[in-house]
Nucleic acid binder design. Structure first.
Length: 358
DNA sequence: AAATAAGTCAACCGCAATCGG
DNA sequence: CCCGATTGCGGTTGACTTATT
C-alpha cells in the first residue's frame, strides 16, 4: 500500500492557471497569508487545485516582487559561477538572486546558459527566434510585473514579507547559514563529483571565495580519487564569466605515479583535464546514458568527443568550441603532453568514468 | 498554407527532509 | 522516538509559440 496522496487527484484541476484562479489565490494570501498549510488552502478559497500546485503558483508566479524578463549579465555570471561551484542547487542559487525563482533559473540555465557557457551555437534559424522571443516575453512580463506591483499592491503590502531571509554567502560571518548539504555519493564516483556534488565543507569554501577569487579553495584530502574545483576569474579575455579554471586530484588510489606527476604538472586546467577524460571515454554511450542528472560539464565534454564520429555534429560540442574557452597557452601545453598522458593513464580513469553495465 | 522542427517555460511528479502530535 | 502530514527541491514533461521547409 502506497502513501496517501496529498489531495484528491480526481477532483483536482491540472494545467495552466486561469486569471480567475490567480486572482483568488493572490487575494487570499495577500489578505490572510498562507496560513501555514498549503494543503488546506485551496479548499478554504474554493479552488479545485492541489495545495502543492497553489504553493508553486504563488512562489513562481504570483508572489510580489518577482523579477521576470531577461536576465542581466551580472545575474548570468552569478548563475554560472554558482552552478560550476555547487551544481544544480537551484534554490541556493536563487537565494543569491532576489526576485528570481529556482524554477526560472533552472529553465534559464537549461535553455540558454548551458549552451552559452559551453559554446554550443544555436542554429541559425533559432537565433532570431530566441532574440525576438526574449524581447516579447520581457515586454509581456514587465507589463505583468508592473501591474502586479503597482496595481494589486496598492502600496499597502510589505512585499518583502513573502521572501525568505537571504543568507549572504559572500561574507564569511554568514557561512554558517549555508544549509546542510550532505555528501553525495562516493568520491570515487568521478561523474558525480564533476557533476558538482560537493561536501558542505567544499560549499562553504566556495561561497567564502565568491566575490573574492584571490584565494584558492582548499582541497581536502580524500582516500579515493577526488576532484575538486577552484574558481578564479578568467584571465583569457572571455569577459566576466568565472569558470572552472583549475582542478586538482588526489590520485593516491591510482597505481601509476608517473601519471600523477605528469597530469598534475602538465595539465593544471580543469578544462583540459576534462577534455582529456572525455576524449578518452567519449565513444562509450554508457557514459551518456548515465549522465541524466546535472552533469553539464561532462555532457559537454562527452558531446565534444563523440561529435567526432557523430552524424549530428550540431548537437554536440566541437573541440574548437571548448578550446575557445581555455587560455591558449594552456591548450598548447596540454596538447604537447596529451599523448603521453593518454598512454600512461587512460585505464584507471576509463574505469572510473564508465558507469554502464559491468 | 500546411507540416515539421526547435525553443521556451509553466506546471507536474516523485522523493527526501522537516514538522508536529 | 515514531509515524503520518506537509513542505521543499530538482528533474521532467508537455503545451504553446515561432521559424523553417
Amino acid at each position: 500500500m502506497g502513501r496517501a496522496p496529498c489531495c484528491d487527484k480526481a477532483n483536482v484541476k491540472k494545467g495552466p492557471w486561469s486569471p480567475e484562479e490567480d486572482a483568488r489565490l493572490k487575494a487570499y494570501i495577500e489578505q490572510h497569508g498562507t496560513g501555514g498549510n498549503w494543503i488546506a488552502l485551496p479548499q478554504k478559497i474554493g479552488l479545485k487545485r492541489c495545495g502543492k500546485s497553489c504553493r508553486l503558483r504563488w512562489l513562481n508566479y504570483l508572489r510580489p516582487n518577482l523579477k521576470h524578463g531577461a536576465f542581466s549579465e551580472e545575474e548570468e555570471n552569478i548563475i554560472c559561477s554558482l552552478y560550476i561551484a555547487i551544481g544544480s542547487r537551484w534554490s541556493i542559487i536563487a537565494a543569491q538572486l532576489p526576485g528570481r525563482t529556482d524554477n526560472d533559473i533552472k529553465n534559464y540555465w537549461n535553455t540558454r546558459l548551458k549552451k552559452k557557457l559551453f559554446g554550443r551555437q544555436p542554429k541559425e534559424r533559432s537565433t532570431g527566434r530566441i532574440t525576438n522571443g526574449l524581447k516579447e516575453e520581457a515586454t509581456k512580463r514587465d507589463h505583468k510585473e508592473s501591474s502586479m506591483v503597482n496595481g494589486a499592491g496598492n502600496g499597502t503590502v510589505n512585499f518583502n514579507q513573502y521572501w525568505p531571509q537571504l543568507p549572504d554567502f559572500a561574507t564569511p560571518s554568514a557561512l554558517h547559514e549555508i544549509p546542510n548539504i550532505p555528501q553525495h555519493g562516493s568520491q570515487s564516483d568521478l561523474l558525480t563529483c564533476v557533476g558538482a556534488r560537493f561536501s558542505e565543507d567544499h560549499l562553504r569554501s566556495v561561497f567564502s571565495t565568491l566575490g573574492n577569487f584571490q584565494n584558492p579553495i582548499h582541497i581536502p584530502p580524500s582516500p579515493s580519487l577526488k576532484f575538486d574545483m577552484l574558481t578564479e576569474p578568467l584571465s583569457n579575455g572571455l569577459g566576466s564569466f568565472q569558470s572552472v579554471n583549475s582542478m586538482c586530484c588526489d590520485t593516491s588510489q591510482l597505481s601509476n605515479p608517473h601519471f600523477i606527476s605528469t597530469t598534475q604538472e602538465a595539465v593544471p586546467s580543469a578544462w583540459n583535464e576534462l577534455q582529456y577524460f572525455a576524449n578518452d571515454v567519449g565513444e562509450d554511450e554508457a557514459v551518456y546514458s548515465n549522465q541524466q542528472s546535472s552533469d553539464v560539464l561532462l555532457e559537454a565534454f562527452c558531446g565534444n568527443c563523440s561529435s567526432q564520429a557523430s552524424s549530428t555534429p550540431e548537437s554536440s560540442y566541437s573541440w574548437n568550441d571548448m578550446s575557445s574557452l581555455v587560455d591558449p597557452s594552456t591548450v598548447s601545453k596540454y596538447e604537447a603532453c596529451r599523448p603521453e598522458i593518454q598512454q600512461d593513464c587512460s585505464e584507471p580513469f576509463r574505469e572510473l568514468m564508465y558507469f554502464g553495465p559491468q
